[in-house]
Write a protein that binds this DNA or RNA. Structure first.
Lengths: 138, 138
DNA sequence: ATAAAAATTGCAATACAGTTGCATGCTGTT
DNA sequence: AACAGCATGCAACTGTATTGCAATTTTTAT
């Protein structure tokens, strides 16, 4: 497992330090996305700034993507399916749970072209669905 | 004009103070949405906190809605068409311009049901389209 | 019209996410 | 071992959001 994490980092040209391997490992296990603050609480062994810079590096190298959760909080998640398909900067569909405050990446959904006013140029889209997740619905 | 602004406030059960009338008047003229900071810069006569509370009151009474612009900044805009149709808390489509950083409310667009995982409950949706607005495209 | 009550406003202060600079420490190389 | 280069931690700063409280304005009841 450690090997896998290490080679993932290397393949993105990121030095596999202890910190980075821990963070990546944690993110891989994670089923939703996470904010810097929550990451700090989960991995207390490292300084907030270090984690901040780790996430920033990961994002720059295309290992994770940044999510605005629709409530003003920035979260990070491992790039999945759609990202791998080269959609990294195109379309994101996320689900925000009002109860547990978690943000989940939803499987890619077809969204029709949005009719823009004259001369508007579309570059990216973000769709945030808010509600209650299955775990909280029980 | 002042009469109109005043009666708008009264109809929402908001005391029509000088501050509130100025803010509402300003928002009515506005073609896009505005952040607290930008409002503060535009209406220097009032304290930031007062404007903050004014916007909060307006939002609570359904006069404006809050927008996460997709870049982590909260903005406010007068509720338009779709809001009036009782959609206030249902679906918002906004356009964020990477160049001028403005966020525009887009005319209501049909968005199909997003397929949610088992047992997820949808309450609201927010669609942010990012790109270049017509004014900046020139 | 006036006084009391209630609501609004301004100032100060706090909370917190995000960010940067710099000194220290670790890693790998010659 | 000495050096270069990157990584990390600490302190500090920015900017937005938010609250408490005292002062002021507005409303309400006489």
């Amino acid at each position: 497992m450690k090997q896998e994490v290490e080679s993932m980092l290397k393949s993105k040209e990121i030095n596999p330090t202890v910190n980075r391997m821990l963070v990546l490992d944690y993110l891989l296990e994670l089923k939703s996305s996470i904010s810097l603050t929550d990451l700090e609480l989960s991995l207390e062994s490292f300084d907030r700034v270090t984690l901040y810079r780790t996430l920033k590096t990961f994002e720059e190298r295309g290992l994770v993507h940044k999510i605005e959760d629709g409530m003003g909080i920035t979260k990070f998640a491992i790039c999945q399916d759609s990202c791998k398909a080269g959609m990294h900067h195109d379309l994101h569909v996320h689900f925000y749970c009002h109860n547990c405050k978690q943000t989940f990446c939803l499987p890619k959904t077809q969204i029709p072209e949005v009719k823009l006013p004259e001369n508007y140029q579309r570059q990216e889209m973000e769709l945030i669905v808010k509600g209650i997740c299955s775990a909280c619905a029980k």
